[in-house]
């Protein structure tokens, strides 16, 4: 980098700085990004935790006299085609979607980590067999497989969670497997073996701590994906029961009124889906930069 700046210095006679750090500007956008993401995520979590106990939502109640009112002070997000307040239903929908996303991502990560670590640890035929199984699973489109799984159960939250979890562990398994494979051949594992460490000791002391941040990151990155997946299933009418407020259901029921020019019943659930997931993804991205040890040392020095 100093090589870049030296010709500029000889051309310009003004006391231009010989070397300009790009670090600060980049870091400041990063700080802003993290702050915004954290604020949005915090607000979403607070809303989802605090609003339902304070304001009860009767999922079945309809009020046709208030049908399709545009956003106003009484109803900031307007009302839907059955006269229900959209803001409240959006918060409830976000709650369901977040729950499904979190649980499904957690389950998928646990399955993926276990399968990936086992494949890498055993190696040989087990590894080949398991990874071909993973390939087979991932050759089927996610959504199609998810629909198959959901179709086997009665509609509800749990079938959706199972469906999303079963279709999303593949990438984690691949990440964990490759990570364990690369770590297993490091000289520090050799040194540990030479120091008398058992297999269990090497796994617990050296391999797992190195893999866990990656797996955790994969889990967090999977939350938005799982939320989208849940909404897609609900939108197709296969996910949660139609009367229950979920972001996918809200968009689905508002489809008809959108053609009549009523934009609010589709826009707000859509935003409620996009903004929190982007915030979670932003936090996960910052975390990914953080857990890279080389990056960390650069920050310190």
């Amino acid at each position: 980098m100093p090589g870049h700046a030296s010709p500029a210095r000889s051309e310009r006679s003004a006391p231009a700085p010989a070397w300009r750090s790009h670090g600060r500007t980049r870091r400041s956008t990063r700080t802003v990004r993290v702050a915004v993401s954290a604020a949005v995520t915090g607000a979403v979590v607070l809303a989802v935790l605090l609003v339902p106990p304070l304001v009860q939502l009767d999922q079945q109640a309809v009020d046709l006299s208030l049908k399709l009112r545009p956003p106003s002070w009484d109803h900031p997000f307007g009302t839907d085609d059955l006269g229900r307040d959209l803001l409240l239903r959006c918060v409830y929908g976000l709650r369901v979607s977040l729950l499904v996303g979190l649980v499904a991502a957690l389950v998928a990560t646990v399955i993926g980590t276990a399968v990936g670590a086992a494949a890498a640890a055993f190696g040989g035929w087990t590894d080949r067999l398991v990874m071909r199984l993973v390939d087979t699973f991932s050759s089927v489109p996610h959504l199609l497989l998810g629909i198959f799984v959901v179709a086997m159960f009665r509609p509800g939250v749990w079938p959706v969670i199972v469906s999303v979890a079963l279709t999303h562990w593949l990438s984690t398994a691949r990440i964990v497997r490759s990570e364990v494979l690369s770590l297993r051949s490091r000289p520090y594992v050799d040194a540990a073996i030479s120091g008398g460490a058992s297999r269990w000791r090497v796994t617990v002391r050296h391999l797992l701590p190195a893999v866990l941040p990656q797996a955790g990151l994969a889990a967090v990155l999977m939350v938005p994906h799982a939320m989208w997946h849940e909404s897609a299933l609900s939108f197709l009418g296969l996910g949660l029961p139609a009367h229950q407020a979920s972001l996918g259901n809200l968009v689905q029921t508002a489809r008809g009124s959108l053609l009549a020019g009523d934009w609010w019943p589709t826009l707000f659930p859509g935003l409620f889906l996009i903004i929190p997931t982007l915030a979670v993804a932003g936090l996960a991205g910052a975390w990914r930069e953080r857990i890279n040890p080389r990056r960390r040392s650069e920050l310190m020095l």
């Binding site: 050799d190 030479s194 460490a197």
Partner: peptide, 30 residues
């Protein structure tokens, strides 16, 4: 454990998560 090994690249042969104190004590604990 009757054979002690030192490798060429110290960066690769030290677990990046352990403090040097734990790095040295690791064989005793294991």
């Amino acid at each position: 454990t009757a054979i002690g090994v030192v490798f060429q690249q110290p960066r690769m042969s030290a677990d990046p998560r352990l403090r040097l104190r734990d790095l040295i004590a690791e064989p005793l604990r294991a």
